[in-house]
Design a protein around this nucleic acid. Structure first.
Lengths: 162, 162
DNA sequence: GGAGTGATACTCGGATATCTGGTGTCCGAGTTTTCGCGG
DNA sequence: CCGCGAAAACTCGGACACCAGATATCCGAGTATCACTCC
């Protein structure tokens, strides 16, 4: 799985902790998390395309959530980065084995191997779609070291726009 | 996810359908599934290293299951090919954000983001570990086209060894 | 002083290099078979 | 005819190229700001 997923999730949670309507620069998000700015922009771009973030262009630009954090699931962020397709892709090799029939009707049901893998991915998705960014933000506020949290919030507050 | 996982699963199921103790050549497994022989060997090798298959060297060589199909889970095969590590890897970027404490005690708990991803992967693993190769073989025998099944079995029977 | 206007500075967006891991292939190590030879 | 032995044939195992996708980066499109000018 791409490293960008982690960055995207942290950035989304960070933006969720900002005041309503406020924006943060991609540059500051990169600085805050200690990652490459140019590369992070590429991932933020993907989040914008997926409709999770809003980007304001121009000099007073920045990023902010496109909808409430409680309505953005972790799965939304993951699929925005990784793509929507299943990671396991069945190439239907059963049709190539000797003696296999050519009738399409025999292959309407997915082969059990594929079905199993898809079921596993479905379970994976269920967990991720059951957790929202708002949940993560709340959890972090509860679990994190208090002083670190305050200092981080202070650092961000000096960069918040609007 | 690697294409080799699909090949490995099909080969393992195929071997599970063979008589007790009988072997099949890697070459025949490749022919049967219509895939590259040399590349398939690479994956079979991984299954042997993982202790799922047994390989007999020499002229009378071949592959067979190292233990009963009912004791080989789908997860075993997948991890043999893909590796045991989680696909999501947390780089602990929370420690790099401004104002973060350096005390290790604050980071004993995994960050909620990582915890969520790990929980999802755990659910994924649970599904795969709950399904055995024997289950898949039974399911295939039930669902597959009967004639194709018979012809496939005949083709294999001429190549079975021992 | 206020409004209009052009230049400017700054931000995001897509197009462009680089590199790691999956994909694909090959030849050598090792074992069984087989053929030949001798008893 | 039977036992023995060496050579051969065949199989798996690990080492070696190749390529797609992730990684990393840069420059251009677009907009709010700002300074300057004019009324």
């Amino acid at each position: 799985m791409s490293q960008g997923v982690e960055w995207a999730l942290h950035c989304t949670v960070t933006l969720a902790g900002q005041p309503e309507g406020a924006t943060l620069l991609g540059r500051d998000l990169a600085l805050y998390h200690g990652v490459s700015e140019a590369y992070l922009l590429k991932h933020l771009q993907a989040l914008v395309r997926a409709g999770l973030l809003e980007s304001l262009p121009g000099r007073a630009g920045g990023y902010r959530l496109a909808r409430p954090a409680a309505e953005i699931s972790v799965l939304d962020v993951v699929t925005a980065i990784e793509g929507v397709g299943p990671s396991f892709r069945c190439s239907e090799i059963r049709r190539r084995q000797p003696g296999a029939t050519t009738e399409a009707a025999a292959y309407r049901r997915p082969c059990p191997i594929n079905a199993t893998m898809l079921a596993a991915e479905s379970a994976w998705r269920d967990v991720l779609s059951g957790r929202t960014i708002a949940d993560l933000l709340l959890e972090i506020h509860r679990r994190a070291d208090f002083d670190s949290l305050v200092r981080g919030a202070e650092w961000l507050s000096t960069r918040t726009r609007n």
